[in-house]
């Protein structure tokens, strides 16, 4: 499992087709690779490069800029604890220390059994629910050391399987555009004025 599966390759081509310039699809395709394998493999990046028509180095260049893309395996559950101001004021420093002790790892590490990877994350827009965290990008609010322990026990026991998908899966609903509804990607070289903007010589702006 490294290159995109035939099924994902079809999906990748659909996604590429939505953009006026294929390279715009890079980030969604890297997410697709991560959804498939749990992390982004070199082989997947090479495959994406072929599909998009850029070099593998360019794919890596983009991939390596963004923190959500993992270029080595991570735990089944990626636990991101917010480390920003609203959460810090409400005790997230202590929560992070507690999490390190509870999981027996330091920030950035994965538990030896491969279940949990612990990370500090930048503000995840739940500031009124501080301190907060995400497990595979699903929120938990107003987390205390006690509720953290409970969460870890539940996750280890396989709870929340319905709510929290494996690492790499973000939205479980994909955008689908039926062929008879698509307006079409508008290429940058397409110099035509849109139809609804009126008479092209009429000076409508």
């Amino acid at each position: 499992m490294a290159r995109l599966t035939p099924e994902n390759e079809v999906l990748a081509r659909t996604i590429i087709g939505r953009y006026p310039v294929p390279k715009s699809a890079l980030i969604p395709l890297l997410h697709l690779a991560q959804e498939q394998d749990g992390w982004v493999t070199d082989e997947a990046m090479a495959h994406i490069a072929e599909l998009v028509g850029v070099s593998a180095a360019e794919v890596l260049g983009t991939c390596s800029f963004y923190e959500m893309f993992k270029r080595e395996p991570v735990g089944r559950y990626l636990v991101n604890i917010c480390t920003n101001i609203s959460c810090v004021l409400m005790g997230s420093d202590d929560l992070l220390s507690h999490a390190e002790q509870r999981l027996g790892v330091t920030v950035g590490e994965t538990t030896p059994d491969g279940t949990f990877t612990l990370e500090g994350v930048e503000c995840i827009a739940a500031c009124t629910e501080a301190p907060c965290l995400q497990v595979n990008y699903r929120y938990r609010y107003k987390v205390t050391p006690e509720s953290f322990d409970e969460l870890v026990d539940d996750l280890a026991a396989g709870a929340f399987a319905d709510e929290i998908p494996p690492h790499g899966t973000l939205a479980r609903v994909r955008q689908v555009i039926a062929a008879d509804r698509v307006a079409g990607a508008v290429e940058p070289t397409d110099g035509r004025q849109p139809e609804w903007m009126g008479d092209p010589d009429g000076g409508a702006s």
Binding site: R18, M68, Q175
Partner: peptide, 9 residues
């Protein structure tokens, strides 16, 4: 067309 795109952190 309105295309849903998403970032990566």
């Amino acid at each position: 067309d309105v295309i849903l795109h998403w970032g990566a952190g």
